[in-house]
Amino acid sequence: MTDLLKYEQAEISYRGRPAVRDVSFTLRQGEILGIVGESGSGKSTLIRAAMGLLGPSGAVTGGDILYKGKSLPALSPEELRRINGPELGMIFQNAGASFCPIRKVGAQLYESVAAHEKVSRHDFTEQAVDLLQKIGFTDGRRILNSYPFELSGGMQQRVGIAAAMLLKPSVLLADEPTSALDVFVQKQVVEEMLLLHRTFGTSIILVTHNIGLVGAMADNVLVLKDGHAVEYGRTQQVLQSPENAYTKQLMAAVPRLKRATG
């Protein structure tokens, strides 16, 4: 088990105002880490900082984010671009919106793969169909030949996951990957991510407000409130016997289905 991604007392600010302060955690090889928190807690900011996606007004203003020992904020845009994709992959909340609406899905996937590695169109198609098959699309070729609008929201999200997985990143950063989906599709997406995790040993950081999702997937959990890490530990422990007052309040507020008889 090696440390892949390490946040060391990271402070991330927008226009000089810190949105995340003093957050430290380590993501090991093959680990799934859940980052939970409510809106405004800075959970999305945290993983966007690793990808360099903070936008013009945001910056890492303290501490460090290390990927395999390299400081990500210190990298040049060109170096960062080389890492994003094959090393760090990202899934967004609405993957459908990040597809260009007037080009076929396959062409767009090929473009993003070809940006990072030399691959022939034919080899790419084979790989892509193979991967799509792994995540439950029996007819991968048809998916590649579709325009984004021909796929449902759930399918777009799953193709978005496939897209991120095509370059076999060692770390997958998932920002609210199921929040826009119905519970059926949510369950499918969860199963796909777990399958990829098992097949390729991908480490995942799962940013979500959905405690149920974290409970079903994550090994460890980091709880954020107002930019601070208030609790960090094994999933079972944090979810079942939280120590921090806020975590307790959060866990108590989560509506849980009572299936048991009586």
Partner: peptide, 8 residues
């Protein structure tokens, strides 16, 4: 994919 690289 678009999201990952193109955004950057």
């Amino acid at each position: 994919m678009r999201q990952t690289f193109l955004k950057n």
